[in-house]
Design a protein around this nucleic acid. Structure first.
Lengths: 110, 110
DNA sequence: AGTCATACCTCAGTGGTCAAGGTATTGCTG
DNA sequence: CAGCAATACCTTGACCACTGAGGTATGACT
């Protein structure tokens, strides 16, 4: 599975966003990100699962085993209150940061 | 010197951009990035200098000792041909990537 | 003489990602 | 019904960029 060479640190925020309307399982989160990025981002599983565990350990996600619509067992993640706060802050940070980098990369004089 | 919590991987591209109109020394590159990001990005020197050495080692920058306008000795960096090519590619990559992440973070339905 | 800004550097530690391996189950298709 | 793709989870070692903190030296101004 070819990764997308992530800019480190952006994955966690996207994961939090993915579950912001309800519980989702890991594999589905990866698929959701790919789809919502118009196939630009392909999440490496070796990055995805450690990230989920990390976020759970930080108390930003809670996990629970369940069954998918297609009858498969899967671990479902949802946002905690802290996770929702974090998501909000991270989105602000991303906006500022990406605008700053874009400004730098389109500067037209020294 | 407080860093800006960089998203790993974005620094190199900004450095290449900084020297795209002519040679610049390391300390000045840090200042240039800060100014062109409207003070949003404060480059940690512990990130900056290793990055310069890295890029030089990769053949994307060439370095040469010189003297600044204010009469101080400093190491000046400029783009190599490979560096210019890399910069172009990295800017494209950043545009695609940042648009993708922004799309994901502003998705409005599951 | 002292201090600030400039200008360079290194190092240990941390931590996220990649690449590659693995297990198990469902469901489709030949 | 055998085989295989897709789903769904996981771990591990290696790599490497960044943080935070330390350091040296010089020019300019007070």
């Amino acid at each position: 599975m070819a990764g997308s060479d992530l800019y480190t640190g952006t994955l966690d925020t996207m994961i939090l966003k993915a579950v912001s309307w309800g519980a989702m399982h890991g594999y589905g989160i990866g698929r959701w990100i790919r789809q919502n990025s118009d196939d630009a981002l392909e999440i490496n599983e070796g990055a995805l699962y450690p990230a989920l565990h990390r976020l759970e350990k930080k108390g930003l996600l809670s996990e629970e085993w369940g069954v998918t619509e297609t009858n498969r067992k899967a671990k479902f993640y949802k946002l905690t209150a802290a996770g929702r706060r974090q998501l909000k802050a991270e989105i602000v940070r991303w906006k500022k940061y990406s605008q700053a980098v874009t400004a730098v990369l389109s500067a037209s004089s020294a």
